[in-house]
Computed example of a mutant assay.
Amino acid sequence: MSKKPLILVTNDDGITAPGIRALITVMNTIGDVVVVAPDSPQSGMGHAITINSTLHIEKITVDDGPQEEYSCSGTPADCVKLGVREILKRRPDLCVSGINHGSNSSINVIYSGTMSAAIEAGIEDIPAIGFSLCDYNWSANFEHCKSYVKTISEHVLKHGLDRRTVLNVNFPNLEKSAIKGIKICRQALANWEEEFDKRQNPYGKDYYWLTGKFVNLDLGEDTDEWALANGYVSVVPIQFDLTAHHSIQKLNTWNFNEK
């Protein structure tokens, strides 16, 4: 029996995306790899799961390598659920998601299929990391990410993570020689100023394209946005307990039961 760690690999850009192929290459140097990833792009799916239709899995070969690969008709969260419950023979020692084509820093983590896959693994109490490169180009170069992916993954395997915590890792779109290192950060306060581009089809029916710009509202120098803008790989520990603990005491002063 192999003594290597068992690693589940997934993403949201689809199983053939260059980002996940780069991630698989790195994971093959660390452990035994099983890939369960969407059969088509699922960006922006957040933590959606499939409940009103059937799911399909197909064992495939995308490229040469020792990894075992499965293409899934569902969302990134579906891929993790199926991987853990139906495909893997034992619980994985690590789940990695990505490398995403585009940033998942700051508020983007809420919408991210990449990070939702990692969070789903965290819910299963599996150490998990989401990796993203701040380059949306399909032909983006992921080579400068690989050494950092390996370093961070090996540290997680060695030291573990706190329960209910996963890592959100973002890489600046820079040459490797320009990256200053890794910085542990908090999530920046930012949002999207969104607009809808309203158009009409040839039949006169209105349709909309979502547009907008990302606005960083946070001037702190300890955030993921600051780190990325200043040439660092950002690492943010995130939790999926969404309780606003600081508000509990205040809400307890409200007399909801007053007649």
Score class of each variant (00 low, 15 high):
Leu6Ala: 06
Asp12Cys: 03
Asp12Phe: 06
Asp13Asn: 09
Arg21Gly: 01
Ala22His: 04
Ile24Thr: 09
Thr25Gln: 12
Val26Ala: 07
Val26Ser: 06
Met27Glu: 00
Met27Cys: 04
Met27Arg: 04
Thr29Cys: 05
Val35Ile: 06
Val36Lys: 14
Ala37Asp: 05
Pro41Ser: 01
Ser43Cys: 04
Thr50Phe: 14
Ile51Cys: 10
Ile51Ala: 02
Ile57Asn: 15
Pro66Ile: 05
Tyr70Cys: 11
Ser71Ile: 05
Cys72Trp: 04
Cys72Pro: 00
Gly74His: 09
Thr75Tyr: 02
Asp78Gln: 12
Asp78Lys: 14
Val80Gln: 01
Val84Pro: 00
Lys89Gly: 14
Arg91Gly: 03
Val96Asp: 08
Val96Lys: 00
Gly98His: 02
His101Glu: 06
Asn104Tyr: 01
Ser106Ala: 13
Gly113Met: 00
Thr114Met: 00
Ala117Glu: 01
Glu120Gly: 05
Ala121Tyr: 01
Gly122Cys: 02
Pro127Met: 04
Gly130Tyr: 00
Phe131Pro: 01
Cys134Thr: 14
Cys134Arg: 07
Trp138Asp: 04
Ser139His: 15
Phe142Val: 06
His144Val: 15
Tyr148Leu: 03
Ser153His: 03
Ser153Gln: 05
Glu154Ala: 02
Glu154Tyr: 06
Asp162Glu: 12
Asp162Ile: 04
Thr165Glu: 07
Val169Ile: 05
Phe171His: 05
Pro172Cys: 00
Glu175Gly: 11
Lys176Arg: 08
Ser177Thr: 14
Ile179Met: 11
Ile179Phe: 14
Ile179Leu: 06
Lys180Ile: 14
Gly181Lys: 11
Ile182Pro: 02
Ile184His: 13
Cys185Phe: 08
Ala188Phe: 07
Ala190Tyr: 12
Gln200His: 14
Lys205Val: 07
Thr211Tyr: 02
Gly212Cys: 15
Lys213Val: 10
Phe214Gln: 14
Phe214Trp: 13
Asn216Gly: 11
Asn216Asp: 14
Asp224His: 02
Ala227Pro: 09
Ala229Asn: 15
Val233Ala: 11
Val233His: 05
Asp241Leu: 15
His245Gly: 11
His246Tyr: 13
Ile248Lys: 13
Ile248His: 09
Gln249Asp: 15
Thr253Arg: 09
Thr253Gln: 07
Asn255Leu: 02
Phe256Trp: 11
Phe256Pro: 07
Asn257Glu: 10
Asn257Thr: 03
Glu258Leu: 04
Lys259Cys: 03
